[in-house]
Design a protein around this nucleic acid. Structure first.
Lengths: 348, 348
DNA sequence: AGAGGTGTAGAAAGCGCTTGCTGTGACGTT
DNA sequence: AACGTCACAGCAAGCGCTTTCTACACCTCT
């Protein structure tokens, strides 16, 4: 039925061991023999049995990439960068590794289950991207799992995610707090004093950090925050639209709306426009991430650019052991404030 | 070192066979025994060895999803929909399958290599998304590979990709030609007679089909096409920007620009704005796909909506054998013209 | 010419799991 | 009382590969 190593060996008149060695190329094989084997492989159209190979060698070439939402370019960009460094077929890395991205959809259970599945497959490395979930039991479960993975020799890298001390995972985080603060300070600097904030889902680290930065900026400038000025929602456009409307309902005098990310900001812009406000004349808007489409909004979105691709690439290299992990296993990347047309001085 | 089935068996005072059966749950095991085994599994923190299991059972729970560009929401949305039906952990499907997305980056070699890798892993199913590459040798190689996969019992589904006759693959295609034609007819209906076209990469089926639709519309209305009106580029914003500029250079009198997809269209809009043209007063612009951000452009983009999520979900179900393939193994989904602010009558 | 390399190939022992087949008591049947 | 019948558990044979150890030429020195 299916062609096995033994078949190839028979055809090439050598032992299975030799065929295996030719295929793995880590043992001297005479050129003539190699050629004969290769020909047999070709003629029989042999395809290595992955599971058998992984079992015998006790290793696998799988590398897992966990993302919260694969339809969101935020993750897509990171995943793409990671994968290009992992090698994948044709990547710059030599060995052919199967880089696979797993979509958790932001669900804690799925996150855990995917990790188990990768553990089952004896994955060579795992990269977790984006914000973590703040629930304590879940976090403990995750940490335990990560610990087990690293103990088993799987390299674990957190990309754009806070460190997980004691798990052995390398963390490349983004300074969401700093970025959030800088962004809001920019708005305050323009003269805004009544700023609404459309936050992401409650239980995410990213959400919390960005919000903390925002509040730190307010506090630093002696602006007392009104609880009505914060609305939580999802990280999507729709949610931004609704939240902005809600914000306006609560306080029609807001002069600026800061959003949890760019998609949310665009939704907020739409809501503002639909309610007859001009951006930035009536209300300024700011996003976060600087995804490619943000510059095409009209006016273009003021936002914080995160080095998504750079961090992803680095995470990929570290996962492959081709780059030294940062000292202490933790590195933090700063965001860069991108001031564009969506923010301006409030109306006098 | 690592805990094996045998360890669990020893601890639970049963044979390895019994443990395996408890874990796979497809053979009668007394409740008391089962419980004992489960407890042992828990206590020892046992994790099944995936490769060993796949080898022995000669099956695997891997499902591959190939995408051209994971950073592009076009693929992200489809992948997300596919994956949610595949199950992945916690998905609606019962069995836990590892749905993995592989990013080919549009490279023919990578595409092939990923397929080989999936073949090695004895993947349960493979879903290929998006346009195919038109190069004849590559196509032959792909078809041969797909044939081998289906022969080996792997279910192969093409999602948003033209059929591959004789390979045994199920195809869920998009009517790019029809959509392209409808879009251009809309523009012609508004009175446009000089229409530029920013096409995608030459060798893609998607590119060709959309362009054919465009040309069919022109021909149907007796508009003779000027070769200067078509520029090829990549499927990204940047490319759209440059191409639009080039188009304008070649013929400053164009009154409409049709783009290969929404990202390209947004780039074109930016170019038009930067060159001092108003949309749609001076030039109308149209995109394709209706990705979420298209509605946020100002003016909102006229485009063709493709049922990305629906097709993905269906592809996922078919891949899992939970839905009957369409008759003949081929189904085509139509796009829906979305008329928005970016298209209007040309200036008198 | 014999000792010691060196380069290459094979034999065989697993890797950890699944599963067909074979017990083996407990129970129901005639 | 003797005999199927069940429900459940174990034995053991692989699944297809990797890798250690061994074997054998064939050289190269001395």
């Amino acid at each position: 039925m299916t062609v096995t190593l033994a078949d190839v060996a028979a055809r090439a008149q050598v032992s299975p061991a030799t065929v295996s060695r030719v295929l793995n190329g880590n043992y001297p094989v005479a050129a003539s023999t190699r050629e004969r084997v290769l020909r047999a492989v070709d003629e029989l159209d042999y395809v290595l049995n992955g599971p058998a190979s992984s079992l015998a060698a006790a290793t696998s070439d799988l590398v897992g990439i966990l993302v919260n939402d694969i339809a969101d370019p935020f993750f897509g960009i990171m995943a793409s960068a990671i994968q290009s460094e992992i090698g994948g077929p044709g990547g710059r890395a030599g060995g052919e590794r199967l880089a696979v991205v797993c979509n958790t959809g932001g669900s804690p259970e799925r996150e855990l289950t995917y990790l188990t599945l990768l553990q089952r497959q004896r994955a060579a490395a795992v990269v977790l991207t984006g914000g973590a979930i703040e629930d304590a039991p879940h976090r403990a479960a995750m940490d335990a799992k990560l610990r087990k993975l690293t103990d088993a020799g799987t390299r674990v890298v957190l990309c754009g995610r806070p460190p997980a001390p004691g798990t052995g995972a390398i963390a490349l985080t983004f300074d969401n707090r700093g970025g959030g603060r800088e962004l809001t300070e920019h708005l305050i600097g323009l003269g805004h004093r009544r700023l609404g904030y459309v936050a992401g889902p409650q239980e995410r680290t990213t959400t919390r950090h960005r919000l903390e930065g925002h509040r730190a900026a307010l506090a630093a400038h002696g602006i007392e925050e009104d609880p009505r000025w914060t609305v939580h929602g999802r990280y999507d456009r729709r949610s931004g639209y609704e939240a902005a409307l809600e914000l306006l309902r609560r306080d029609p005098a807001l002069t600026a709306v800061v959003a949890a990310n760019d998609s949310v900001a665009l939704g907020a812009c739409a809501a503002l426009r639909d309610s007859g406000r001009k951006i930035p004349d009536d209300v300024s808007v700011a996003g976060f991430d600087d995804l490619p489409f943000s510059i095409d909004a009209v006016p273009a979105l003021t936002t914080v650019r995160l080095p998504l691709a750079e961090a992803g690439a680095r995470a990929g290299r570290i996962a492959m052991g081709r780059e030294e992990p940062p000292p202490g296993g933790i590195a933090s990347a700063r965001g860069e404030l991108m001031v564009r047309g969506s923010s301006g001085a409030p109306r006098a």
